[in-house]
Amino acid sequence: MAVTLAEEIMLLSLDEESGTAERQQTAGWAVAGGILLELVLAGRVAVDGKYLSLTDPTPTGERLLDDRLELLGAWLGGRDKRRVTEWLAKDRAKAGKAAVQSLCARGVVVEEQHKALGLFPIRRYPEADSAPEAELRQRLGAVVLEGAVPDERTAGLVALIHATKLYALAFPDAPRKQVTGRMAEVAEGQWAADSVRTAIRDMQAALTTIAVVTAATAGS
């Protein structure tokens, strides 16, 4: 399988040379959302309004997704549905780590361990293969900066970035107004089938809600 939405967001977050994560907490929300949206696109999970449900427990063959699928089934505990925001809050930290490990397994990044002050372990993940990130940035640039028509996965990725306001990670040098306007257009556009478009909209709403609450908490 190609690099997943969650891994793509993680690639945008990781500095390609130092391997350190930027906007780590917010990127974690987007990564968790990316995994969930990928499961929607694979027909394993449904997102309807504020709720999510498991529709098909069959593994996808992609370990990053299948581990989450199994955890999601256990978390639902036999219930038909639970709130999307509850799952994202539960999975945020673990999803980010899982996405980095998946990139390591693909050989896209490598893990380096250091000790700060000789005591505290620090892990960094510099790029070993620059091709996936280069392709990702080229695709995002074509859609957001040049107006190309996105496929549904790219539209979903743009919606996740837009909802979590990670504009600077994707387009550090582009005018913010231009980027935000086009991302809003893509996120709300008619680029996918009705069911997928609805899921993208509802995922975006859930992540936007979380971003607002997180910002309010940080400022209190």
Rank of each mutant, 00 (worst) to 15 (best):
S53N: 02
A74D: 09
G73S: 06
G107E: 14
A170F: 00
L136Y: 04
A187F: 04
Q24K: 11
S130P: 03
L160K: 05
S18C: 05
D194L: 03
G33M: 01
K94Y: 15
A93K: 15
D56W: 02
V3C: 06
V149N: 10
K81M: 14
A128M: 08
H162W: 02
I9S: 06
A142W: 11
L5E: 04
T180P: 09
R137F: 01
L103P: 03
E112M: 07
T198W: 00
L52D: 10
T198D: 07
A27I: 05
T85E: 10
E135A: 10
A211D: 15
L207V: 00
V213N: 11
G189K: 09
L140G: 08
A155T: 06
A98S: 11
V158E: 13
G73C: 03
S220H: 15
G49Y: 00
F171M: 02
E152S: 09
D56Y: 03
L72G: 04
G107C: 10
W29M: 13
D202L: 01
Y167I: 05
I35R: 07
P126M: 01
S18T: 09
G189M: 05
T26E: 13
R123L: 14
G147D: 03
A199W: 00
L76C: 03
E188N: 13
V108L: 08
R139G: 10
W75Q: 11
M1Q: 13
F120V: 15
A199S: 05
L41I: 15
T180A: 12
D151F: 00
A105E: 12
R176K: 14
I200S: 02
E135R: 12
R197Q: 12
V3G: 07
E111W: 02
A95D: 09
Y51A: 11
E38R: 00
Y125V: 08
A21Y: 05
A159G: 15
R123T: 10
A184H: 12
G107P: 04
A211H: 06
Q204E: 14
P57V: 05
G118K: 01
A187P: 13
T55Q: 07
G34T: 00
A46T: 07
R106T: 01
V186P: 09
E188I: 05
V47C: 02
V31G: 02
D80S: 15
S195H: 09
G19S: 07
H162A: 13
A170H: 06
V196K: 11
R23Q: 15
E38V: 00
Q178W: 03
T209C: 04
